[in-house]
Design a protein around this nucleic acid. Structure first.
Length: 481
RNA sequence: GGCCCUGUCGUCUAGUGGCCUAGGACGGUGCCCUCUCACGGCAUAAACCCGGGUUCGAAUCCCGGCAGGGUCACCA
């Protein structure tokens, strides 16, 4: 049987890094085994769910290249893929649970609950701000064993069996995890407005969508238990679970949307990170395959397994993300990088740039000199301009009388060059140096300063080829004046 | 607080009782290469949370501490 996995975000904000990695692991497993990857939208939190968030999540996944076989825009016969579109289904299952004695309607009011809390606090001698949970507060609804049926709104609670002992599951990452039955209250299945809560909607959907493996963050370990009870009550086969360690920020707190801008996937696009650079980095954060660090997309698919997922939390390391990105910048085909780079170059002041031979050459020149596409675009921009402003200190150092004399000699050679390529240009530096008893650097630096305005650039040949013959000679003339 | 998960260089990690004198990567430092900057190459500093136990032998197994994290909503 081919596995079916899913990613089930709630559209309450942008695509979070942790969510992206969860999606990635599910996607990798599905792709590796020729299975199906489903995207389901858990939009039952109507207070916070927005259309923009949904779009942001879709955009984020698309940018990363994590495609779904079923979900929004792709019907696969297991829909609807939005929870708010299957309220009737949840209601029917809830009724079934009630009929079988596994759930009950709870007509308790907010006031009654508050009164119960207050009574508990009084009994324990707690003060105003004390945490009731720490003191062991549990709410037992008076409706648990009532047969009475009223009209009007009611929430539906699961009737947790009063059992001795423990129950649990075999996690694909963590191994056996168990808890005592009496650790659980009668948790809520459905709100009084008929909208299911996470644990209930999740189980119904995973079953309806024939999900075989659920990989999710470790924050969901504890919600697995109530879910297991629902599976038992309904006589359904639960999927296999794989709980993935959380990602922390450098301040050692959980990577959060509020405090940590790097938690936003699309922020990295803005910063000039390649989708694959981010994929490679987040894959290695919490998963490993021996000593391997760099993986192509295909290698990730073939090598991924839940057994390689770690057990402990990982800390976000921006330096390593940059290093990983740089690796792919200089490893991927220049044409591919050029296509990714184009929008950044256009945004940085070269609106009419196109993916052409010059841009590809620019990638070859700057891929190993840049950590991001943003940086590469900035470095490339002067090569698209007419003329250049020469840095004062650089001019003082390299364009004195001697420097200018050597520059003039070099220009004579350059003018006579039949073909304007790095291979043809490079030897000229040495020829001029030898002919004038100068060091190679004494010739190269004045050319570099004249051509780029500063002392740092790729090799002279590459630099001048990228600039073009006319622009190079124009800048040299300007420097000579 | 109850329950649950986790604990190897600063960080990500390899490691499943002898191959560990604990390996790789990022970052740091030094050197080499070199027309500058990079790239690349070489070298180097840097870790098994603590305490018991099991064993001929423990980073690996067990117990106890300690530390970090998760969860305990009509959020997901």
């Amino acid at each position: 049987m081919k596995p079916r996995l899913r990613f089930a975000p709630s559209p309450t904000g942008y695509l979070h890094i942790g969510g992206a990695r969860t999606a990635l692991f599910n996607w990798l497993y599905a792709r590796k085994h020729g299975g199906t990857f489903v995207l389901r939208i858990e939009d039952t939190d109507q207070e916070r769910s927005t259309e923009q968030s949904l779009q942001a999540i879709l955009d984020g996944l698309t940018w990363l290249g994590i495609d779904w076989d079923e979900g929004p825009g792709k019907d696969g016969g297991h829909g609807p893929y939005f929870q708010m579109k299957k309220l009737a289904r949840y209601a029917a299952i809830a009724d079934e649970l009630i009929a079988k004695g596994w759930a009950y309607r709870d007509y308790s009011t907010e006031e009654e609950l508050a009164a119960a809390r207050k009574a508990f606090a009084a009994e324990k001698g707690l003060k105003e701000g004390d945490d009731l949970r720490s003191a062991g507060f549990k709410f037992t609804s008076p409706w648990r064993d009532s047969k009475e049926r009223r009209d009007g709104p009611a929430l539906i609670r699961f009737k947790m069996p009063r059992r001795e002992g423990r129950f649990g599951f075999d996690d694909l990452v963590l191994g056996r995890i168990e808890k005592p039955y009496d650790d659980f209250d009668d948790f809520v299945l459905m709100r009084s407005d008929g909208v299911p809560l996470y644990n209930f909607g999740c189980v119904v959907d995973d079953h309806d969508m024939a999900i075989t493996h659920v990989a999710r963050g470790q924050e969901h370990i504890n919600s697995t238990f109530p879910q297991l009870m629902i599976y038992e009550a309904l006589g359904w086969q639960p999927p296999q679970f794989a709980h993935i360690p959380l990602i922390f920020a450098q301040d050692n707190s959980k990577l959060s949307k509020r405090k940590h801008p790097e938690a936003d996937v699309m922020r990295h696009k803005e910063n000039g990170i390649l989708p694959h650079g981010l994929i490679n980095f987040i894959a290695r954060l919490g998963w490993s395959h021996g000593n391997d660090e760099l993986f192509t997309r295909d290698e990730l698919i073939s090598k991924f397994d839940f057994s390689g997922v770690g057990h402990s939390q990982g800390v976000w390391n921006p330096g390593k993300l940059l290093a990983t990105n740089k690796h792919w910048l200089k490893t991927l085909e220049p044409l591919q990088v050029a296509m990714a780079l184009l929008p950044y170059l256009q945004a940085t002041g070269v609106p009419d740039a196109t993916v052409d031979a010059k841009l590809e050459l620019g990638v070859k020149a700057f891929a190993e000199r840049s950590e991001t596409l943003v940086e590469m675009a900035q470095k490339l921009r002067p090569y698209y301009a007419h003329g250049v402003t020469i840095d004062g200190a650089s001019a003082a150092k390299h364009l004195g009388p001697e420097g200018k004399a050597l520059l003039a000699k070099a220009k004579e050679q350059l003018v006579a060059l039949p073909s304007w390529t790095a291979e043809a240009i490079d030897p000229i530096v040495k020829i001029v140096a030898d002919a004038n008893g100068a060091k190679v650097g004494a010739v190269a630096q004045p050319i570099r300063v004249a051509a780029t305005g500063g002392t740092v650039s790729p090799g002279i040949g590459l630099t001048l080829e990228l600039l073009g013959r006319d622009e190079t000679l124009h800048r040299i003339d300007a420097a000579l004046r």
